[in-house]
Design a protein around this nucleic acid. Structure first.
Lengths: 138, 138
DNA sequence: GTATTAAATCGGAATCATTCTTATAAATTT
DNA sequence: AAATTTATAAGAATGATTCCGATTTAATAC
């Protein structure tokens, strides 16, 4: 996934081109880590002085619906990152400080599938937490 | 873990005996599933008319600090359940409707440990979601 | 290039879960 | 029973997120 592809996808689906959307996507591209809504506001508020949370949340949720962003919930906050280009299902090692990630290729559901009689499995979450190089120092 | 042991633990640690704590613990014992603060309030509000969220949250957090309750975060809510009696590390299959659980004995971190150079791992989360028998019907 | 239309944005209010504060009440100790 | 310490109620405060009405803007039709 990259910015151009994402903007194309928006167009295909009948959504409009706006500078704010473009800049939001560029931000996720540049950062390539999990960001919260407030991080996005922080990054763009200088360029767009009246930028509202509503706009950010609306677009984050749109991007995530279109598969442009991946999402997780960490410490009571929704976090978003550019969908990884690796097209196969995978998980992440996540820095609790800055949101930076590393891939985990092996999915526990493949290695030893979980199932239970009468229980309809619909999804799973596997995340490993810690602190990245840079964040350990501070 | 059971109600009596939990109340003993409270006493050992210098906390006071109150009917509300006892009833909260009994509730978790009876339900044996993940409950949110509002579920606890709902269950006890008839017996204790002025029961406040503060009391519930304070006690939930105390119980969880003492290892009496396990906790997870689901759909933006903190959820709590009686700590499983199996004393070894394990995970859960969780019903998204009612919070009922099944054990998953195998931990993905044992099967194929995740590590990464320069990344200090501090924890992980593995949960499988779905719908239990009863909740599938409705 | 202007008019039309549908979608996007702003600004602030509303909501929801959770935490904090201060005064009062209850449990434990003496 | 009095003194001490912890627990509680009630409501205010907080933080993240969503909703709403009015306005603006992008895409499309003319």
């Amino acid at each position: 996934m990259n910015v151009d592809k994402a903007m194309e996808k928006l167009k295909e689906e009948g959504y409009k081109y706006t500078d704010k959307r473009m800049d939001m996507l560029q931000l996720f591209k540049d950062e390539s880590r999990y960001l919260a809504a407030k991080d996005v506001l922080e990054a763009l508020k200088d360029k767009y002085k009246g930028l509202s949370f509503d706009t950010i949340y609306r677009n984050l949720s749109l991007f995530s619906d279109l598969g442009i962003l991946e999402t997780t919930e960490l410490a009571g906050e929704k976090k978003f990152r550019f969908t990884c280009s690796t097209d196969h299902h995978h998980h992440h090692l996540i820095c609790l400080e800055c949101g930076k990630t590393r891939h985990i290729d092996e999915c526990p559901m493949d290695v030893s599938p979980v199932s239970a009689e009468g229980f309809a499995v619909t999804g799973h979450k596997f995340e490993v937490y810690g602190y990245c190089n840079e964040c350990q120092e501070s």
